[in-house]
């Protein structure tokens, strides 16, 4: 059993092995993800009952909450992959950091934009401002800059190994921001409402409201897995283009 686990760990480190097993994944993941998102959004937009306080602006939740959850999960993925790279020098982990950051950054941006669009009619309806320096909004902005930093660092350092190592260190150090985002609504007085979902308690919303949220959040994660797989497979080909197996593959492609 231990031997088998060790083998599996080594296989995971092999980009070639990952490329060979993941060929059919993107189609299924992307299709399933988009179907779930479409279902969750139609359900949330047209069928969920309006919120008794916020009216219909709460429907922004079905974009905002999945984007925010995914943006943070993707960052955790960056941190964990960064740690794996630093500890075990696993090539695939470096590729994960390289391809996940540009995907994740879009979801932080989406979380911030939809947050502003939701906050305006909810918190700031009487003012002409669009932004509040709230604990939650500020820590999410820090997350955006961490993503920017990781992306820029890779482009700024010429040697790929040094760039990968530097990005990994930044990704691991930046993990400290994740609990700050999570507890920002508890530690500081804030306008932001507390978490919609927790693992231990029943949601405060009725089921007709949170079920579409669950479906769209699931859709976002599955879609992300699909986009990640496409990007990772591309990165593997790009970095291994001088190896024999990629050359053989390219030879097959030309025929």
């Amino acid at each position: 059993m231990k031997q088998r686990l060790k083998e599996l760990w080594h296989q995971l480190g092999s980009p070639r092995w990952f490329y060979q097993i993941s060929g059919r994944w993107p189609v299924w993941l992307l299709a399933l993800g988009l179907i779930l998102i479409a279902a969750g959004w139609v359900w949330g937009l047209a069928y969920a009952p309006p919120d008794y306080q916020q009216g219909n602006s709460f429907r922004i939740m079905y974009v905002h909450v999945p984007a925010s959850m995914l943006a943070q999960s993707c960052y955790i993925l960056l941190g964990v992959a960064g740690a794996v790279l630093l500890i075990w020098r696993m090539k695939l982990a470096d590729m994960v950091v390289a391809v996940a950051a540009p995907i994740g950054v879009g979801f932080v941006a989406l979380s911030l934009v939809t947050g502003v669009l939701w906050g305006k009619p909810t918190w700031l309806q009487a003012s002409d401002r669009w932004w509040v320096w709230d604990a939650r909004t500020t820590s999410m902005l820090v997350l955006l800059f961490l993503y920017f930093g990781i992306i820029a660092l890779r482009q700024a350092i010429a040697r790929p190994e040094s760039a990968g190592r530097a990005c990994a260190v930044l990704a691991v150090v930046g993990l400290i921001n994740i609990p700050i985002i999570k507890y920002s609504v508890d530690w500081w007085l804030t306008l932001h409402q507390p978490a919609s979902f927790t693992l231990t308690e029943k949601p405060a919303m009725p089921a007709e409201m949170w079920l579409p949220l669950l479906v769209s959040a699931l859709g976002f994660y599955v879609f992300f897995a699909g986009a990640m797989t496409v990007a990772l497979r591309t990165e593997i080909l790009r970095r291994e283009q001088r190896t024999q197996w990629v050359r053989d593959l390219a030879g097959v492609l030309t025929r």
């Binding site: 959004w41 602006s57 984007a67 941006a109 669009l117 939701w118 879609f223």
Partner: peptide
């Protein structure tokens, strides 16, 4: 507010596809 949020969501998903 609602429709622009969904448009932004579609934009990010489309871009990542």
């Amino acid at each position: 507010y609602v429709w622009w949020s969904y448009a932004a969501g579609l934009g990010v998903l489309g871009y990542n596809l």
